[in-house]
Design a protein around this nucleic acid. Structure first.
Lengths: 228, 228
DNA sequence: TTTCTCTTTAATGTATACATTAAATTATGC
DNA sequence: GCATAATTTAATGTATACATTAAAGAGAAA
C-alpha cells in the first residue's frame, strides 16, 4: 500500500528508486510472475548494493507484490483468476463507495475535468481502435473517480489493486470485445455525480465493475487454459 | 498489509521480530501517535543493530503505520477522527461483502463455531462488565466473519484497519454506553449466515458497522476536543 | 541404483564503517 | 539585536565484511 504523498527525498534514495524500478520490471513483465530473483542479481541489475535492493524487496513484500524467501530470493507473486476475483470484488465495493461519495460532494467539488477528459480519451482510443490507449484512459477514469471520492485510504488500496489488474489486463487486452458498454457506464456515472445522485452513481459503477470483472476473469481462465 | 501465512522463518529474523515489537509498542501506546523515533534509539531499545530496525521501519511505512523521514526518524502516524471515518467506511463495505459471501458459502462452510464462541464471549464480558474482554471478543467476531468470507485480501486489509481501530478504541472504550445493540446485530448476522441469506447478512452487518463507526467517531471528536 | 551422510557452496541476515547532507550552532556583519 | 553565512554536528543512506545456515553436491554404504 502506498500511503501519503510521494515525498521528493524518496526520489533521491536508492531504496525508493529500487522500489520504483522493481515495480516497473514487474509490471512490464521483465520479471515474470512466479520467477525468483536473488538480491545480488537484482543489485547488479539496478547498479546498486544489496542493501537498498533488499529494503525495496521488503517494502514490496509488505505491499503484497512479492514474497521474500530466504535463500530463494524475491519471488514475483503470480496473479491467478482466483486472485483477480478477490481484487475485483474489492474494487467493486470501494470504487462504488467512492462514486457515491463523489456524487455527495458534487456541490463542493465541481472539478470533474479529469473524469471528462479520460472519457473523451477513451472515445478517441475506441475510434482509433487503440486498445492500450483505451486501457490507460480507463485506468485514469477510475483513479480520478476514486480521488473525487475523497477517501485517501481507498485511493491507496485501489491503486495497489490497479497494479495487479494492469498485469492481468496486459494478457487479455486483445481477447476482449471492443469496450462499448463500458463507455455508457462511465458516462452514466459522470452524469450521476454531476447531478449529485449518490445512489445512482453507486449502482451504475457497482454494476460496471462487476461486469468488467466477470469478463476479465473469464478471459483469464481461458488464457490459463490455453497455456496448459 | 500482511499478506500470506506467517512463515516460521520470520520469527527467527530480527527484521520481522522488530516489525512485531514495534507494532506492539505502537498499539500499547508506548510509542505515542505523532512521536518521532531515531533508528539508533530504537535499535538500542530492541537490542539489535540499525539494519533490521531500519528494514522494519520501512515495512511498517509500506503498511501505513508510520512515516520514515530522513533525519527526523520514524514518526508514528496519528489517527484523527477523519482517518477513522475513512477506515470505518472501508470496513463497512468490505466486511458487509464478507458477510454476504460467508452466507453464500454457508452450504460448504458449516463451521461457525468461531463466530458463535466470540458472540458468547461478548455476552459473558457484558455480564461481567469487562469492556476490554468485550472489545477483544468483538474483534475476534469481525475477524472470524471476514475469514468466513473467503477473500484473503479483504482479510489482510481489514486486519490492518483493525489495528488502527484498536488504537482509537483504547481511548474511547470507557466513554461508550454498554454495547447492547451490537449484540443483536451480531446474532442477526450469524443467523443470516446460517440461513444462507446473503442479502440479510450484508444489510445487517453494513448497518452495524455504520452505527458503530458513527458512535466511535463521535466519541473520538469529543475526546480530541477535551484534549485541546 | 538408491539412500544416507558429510562436505561444500553460496545466499542471506546482521553489524559496522563511512560518505553524505540536513539541521543545528556558532560566528560575523549590519 | 537581528539576519545571514560559515561551521559543526549527527542521523541517515549505502557499501561491505562476515557469521550463519539452508541447499546442493559428493561420497560411501547398502
Amino acid at each position: 500500500m502506498i500511503f501519503g504523498p510521494p515525498n521528493d527525498f524518496r526520489e533521491k534514495s536508492n531504496s525508493y528508486r529500487a522500489v520504483g524500478e522493481l515495480r516497473r520490471l514487474i509490471f512490464s513483465g521483465e520479471l515474470s510472475p512466479g520467477s525468483d530473483h536473488l538480491e545480488t542479481e537484482l543489485a547488479e541489475r539496478l547498479g546498486m548494493s544489496r542493501t537498498p535492493v533488499r529494503e525495496a524487496a521488503l517494502m514490496l513484500e509488505a505491499q503484497g507484490l512479492v514474497e521474500v524467501r530466504p535463500r530463494r530470493g524475491m519471488r514475483i507473486l503470480p496473479v491467478s483468476p482466483e486472485d483477480m476475483q478477490e481484487i475485483y470484488d474489492i474494487l467493486t465495493e470501494l470504487e462504488a463507495l467512492a462514486a457515491a461519495n463523489a456524487a455527495k460532494a458534487a456541490q463542493e467539488n465541481r472539478d470533474l475535468t479529469a473524469l471528462e477528459r479520460s472519457i473523451s480519451d477513451m472515445e478517441k482510443a475506441l475510434e482509433a481502435d487503440d486498445r492500450q490507449a483505451w486501457a490507460d484512459a480507463d485506468e485514469r477514469f477510475h483513479a480520478a473517480l476514486v480521488h473525487l471520492g475523497g477517501n485517501g485510504r481507498i485511493e491507496a488500496i485501489t491503486a495497489m489493486m490497479a497494479d495487479q489488474v494492469r498485469r492481468a489486463r496486459a494478457m487479455t487486452l486483445y481477447m476482449r470485445p471492443a469496450p462499448v458498454k463500458s463507455h455508457e457506464d462511465h458516462c452514466g456515472v459522470l452524469e450521476a455525480i454531476r447531478a449529485g445522485d449518490a445512489e445512482a452513481a453507486h449502482r451504475i459503477h457497482h454494476a460496471h465493475r462487476k461486469e468488467a470483472g466477470a469478463l476479465l476473469i473469464g478471459l483469464l481462465r481461458r488464457h490459463r487454459f490455453h497455456q496448459l
